[in-house]
Amino acid sequence: MAETVQSEMRHTGFLGLLQRVGLSGRALVVSVPYAWLLLFFLVPFLIVLKIALAESQMAIPPFTSLIENVEDLKYQITVTFYNFHYMVTDDLYIVAYLNSLKIAFISTICCLLLGYPVAYAIAKADPKWRAPLLMLVILPFWTSFLIRVYAWIGILSNNGVLNNVLMWLGIIDQPLQILYTPVATYIGITYSYLPFMILPLYSTLEKLDNTLLEAAADLGCPPWKAFLTITLPLSIPGMIAGALLVFIPATGEFVIPELLGGPDTLMIGRTLWTEFFNNRDWPLASAVAVALLLFLVVPIMIFQNVQGKQGGHP
C-alpha cells in the first residue's frame, strides 16, 4: 500500500489516470519508443566503445572480438588501448580535432553575426510579413543539403561565378583560390547551418516584450544602448541554442570539408570517414568517434538542458 502511494506521488494528471487503468495502455506507449531508442541509439554507442578497444585485423568484420568464447566457458576479455594511444601519438588526429573545433567555432560566430540581424529584422517586421519572411529562411532547409553545398563549387571555383564577377569589376586580375581552402569550408558551414541559428534566435526575439524597449526609451536610453543593455542580454538563450545547433554537428561535419575544403582541410569527421571507408580500420574509426563524442559531451549536455527548458523546437 505504502509503495503504491509512493509511486503515485510522482505521477499526476493524465499519467495518474492512465496508471489507474492498469499499466497496459501506458506500458505499450512507453515501451515501444523507449526500446527502439535503447536498441538503435544507446546500444550502438556501447558497441562503438567496445570496438574502439579492440584490435584491427584483416577479416570481415575487420576487428577482433572483445569477448571470446574460450573452451572452458570462461570469458576472456581482450582490451587494448592501442587505438587511443595511436591517436595521441599521431599528429594527424590531434590536428584534425583542433581544426574541427576551430572551424566549427569560427563558422558558429559567422552564423551568429549573419543570423542575428536577420532574426532581429524578422522579429521586428510587421506581423503580416513575419510568416513569409520566416518561410524564406526555412525554405532552403527543406531543399537538399548536398545540392546546396554543391552550388558553392560553381561559385567559388577558379573560373566560378565569384571570381568572374570580381575580375569583371576589376577588383582582382588573378582568380582567387577559394575553393579547396578552409575559407570555402567556413562559407559552406555558415551557409548550410544559418537557418538553425536564425530560428531559435527569432523565437527568442519575437517573445521579447516590446514595452521593455519603450520603457528604456522613456527613461532616456537611446536605441543602440537599449539594444546592447536589454535586447542583447535577453536574447542570450536563443544565441546559445542556435550556437549549439550549429557548433555540435559542424564539428563532426564530413560533406562540406570533403566537397569544398582542400586535402589539407582536416576535420575529424573526414578523418573518421577515411579510416573507415578507405583504410577499413574499424577499431581506429570507432576510437576517433569515441574521442569526438567526448569532446561534444559537454556541449550536448548544455543543448539538452536548453532543449528541456524550452519544450523545444529544432
Binding site: 544507446l42 562503438v48 563532426g252 569527421g269
Partner: peptide, 16 residues
Amino acid sequence: MVSAPLVMPEVIMGLS
C-alpha cells in the same frame, strides 16, 4: 536519447 540525434554528428550515428 530523443534530443541527442538532433545535434549528433552524422558520422558517429552512421558508424555506430
